[in-house]
Structures are given as C-alpha cells and as structure tokens.
Amino acid sequence: MTPSDQYLLACAGLVDTVRRQHQAIVTAADWFARSIVAGRMVHVFGSGHSRIMVEEMWPRYGSFPGFNPIVELSLTFHNPVVGANGQRQAMFLENVSGLAERILRNFALSPQDSALVISSSGCNVVPIEMAEEFQRRGVRVVSIISRAHSDASTSRRQDGRKLQDFSDVVLDTGAPVGDAMVRVEGLDTPVAPGSTVGGCLLVNCLKAEIAHRLTQAGHAPRVLTASALIGAERATTLFESAYDEHAHRLSRLFATAGPS
C-alpha cells in the first residue's frame, strides 16, 4: 500500500466516524438553525489551523449567512512561520488567559445565539475560555475536537479542564493521537494530518442540515453560488444580498456591546 493509499484509507475511516455522530450533528443543527431563524448568529471560533474550519463554514461557495466567523490574526497568521507575526508568538498567545474575554467583549451576545468552537486538542487556553465565556452568557456551545488526541493530551489550563468540559455537544473529527495518519518506512514520525478532513466533514454536514431546516421553516438561505451553475447575474445578486444580510446580522452584535 502506498503512502497516499494509506491516507485515503484513513480518511474513509474519518467518514465513518462522522457518520456515527448523526444524532449529535442533528442536535447541533437544530440549535444553529433556531439562532439563525431568530435573526441572531452562530459564532464560529478556531485558533491555529482550526481557522480552516471557521472559513469553511462561511463565507465560501455553498455557504450562507447566519455565522459570525471569529478569526484572530494573532492566533492564526502562519505564513511568516518565524520572525514578526511568527508561529512561536501565535502558539504563545493561544495560551494567554483572558484573551477570550477580550475578544468577546466586542459583541453583544444573546442566549438566542449559539457557538461552534473548534480545537483539535481541546487543550489550549483561548478556545477553552471562549467556550466558557459563551456558556457564562447563556450561549449553547458545540465543539469540534479530535477525541483520541484530546484524551491523550494535557490541558494548558491550570485546572486541567478541556474544551469538551465547556461544551453542550462534542463532535469528533476521528483523527488519531498526534493527528498525522501515515507511517513512512524509515521515518519515525507520522505525516499527513486528518483533523482538517474530519473537521470539514462535520462542518459541511452541519451546513447541509441547517440549510434543510431553514428552508423547511420558510427561511430559505441565500447561498453563495458559482456563476457557472446559475449564471453571472443571479450569482452576483446572491453574493450581494448574502453579504448585506451578514452585515445586518452583525450590526445587531455591536448595537448594545458592553460589559456583561
């Protein structure tokens, strides 16, 4: 079996893991759809490479308004790797207690909101405190972690609690301990991580279920759709109206922002 065959086989296992979580996905989709129908938003947060799943949710083709992507560049800007804005600083800041509260201080949250917090290990301080702060404000939290990796990892939080300890529903990417899924002969450390694949599967299952619920409730979403599929004029109309809807929803989060 080639290394790429190994990876694809492991990814098939991730699909099975996600499929077995159907009921939890349905529960999360119910909560998220209710937030959107109420005119509120689903807050989506991820630091490090979990930013990928945040942007997978919204905005991109096949996605729709109703989600507030919270992405802090100081925690996610990996391109320079070293030097100014480098990875060492991002990894340090990801474990600074109090940063999550400062981020959420910008928004007027409501118990009608809901949240999706993504962290492969579930052990870094900022994602954990984001979930804790959401729950403290009465916001339901769904988390995406890699269960096996999280269980084998040590929390950076002083009391040892992890992201799943502040989550109402926990979804598992299915990625293994260490995330990487392929063993190469002569190399003593594995390569090719799986958490992004599992995470994107979960995000898009949620997205599909939410779209179904919104449509059934008479609130068909404005889906960002390629002009190659529906023509340039309609695609442009959908993009503009979806962005306007996002702006209107977001404005409500700033209108009464202040100490909670």
Rank of each mutant, 00 (worst) to 15 (best):
E55S: 08
A12N: 13
T196L: 10
A180Y: 04
R40G: 13
P80N: 08
Y243M: 15
T256E: 15
N106S: 14
D165C: 02
Q6L: 01
L99H: 05
G122H: 05
D244C: 10
P193I: 11
D172I: 05
G86T: 01
V117A: 06
A33F: 12
L229N: 04
M53T: 00
S97H: 07
I118S: 08
T189P: 00
S35M: 02
V82P: 01
P65N: 07
S114A: 15
D30I: 08
V26F: 04
V177A: 00
G194A: 14
A38P: 04
V126L: 07
A257R: 11
V42R: 06
I25P: 00
A131W: 04
F67V: 03
A247H: 10
S121M: 01
R252M: 09
H246F: 15
A217Q: 13
F239N: 05
R147G: 01
M57A: 14
G13P: 00
A226G: 08
M130D: 03
G66M: 07
L187E: 14
S110A: 06
V223F: 04
L73V: 04
V197I: 13
W58S: 11
P193F: 11
E240L: 13
L8I: 14
D168A: 05
G66P: 08
S120W: 02
G231L: 10
L229R: 10
G186Q: 03
S155K: 05
S195R: 01
L253K: 14
T256C: 11
C200M: 13
H246W: 13
L202D: 02
A29T: 06
I230N: 11
S119I: 08
I70Q: 10
L171D: 11
F254M: 13
E185G: 02
G194W: 12
N68C: 13
H22W: 03
T27R: 13
Q112G: 13
W31Q: 08
F77K: 09
L9R: 06
T189V: 15
V81K: 08
P127V: 10
L75H: 13
A242E: 12
V26Y: 03
A115F: 06
M57V: 06
R140K: 14
R88W: 06
A217E: 14
F32L: 09
H246M: 12
A255P: 03
N106M: 08
R222S: 12
Y61F: 15
F254R: 09
V139G: 06
E56C: 02
G178E: 13
E185K: 11
C11R: 09
S121I: 01
M181D: 12
T256M: 06
H246S: 14
G194D: 07
I128T: 03
L104K: 01
T154K: 09
Q164I: 05
L163E: 03
A115Q: 02
R34H: 14
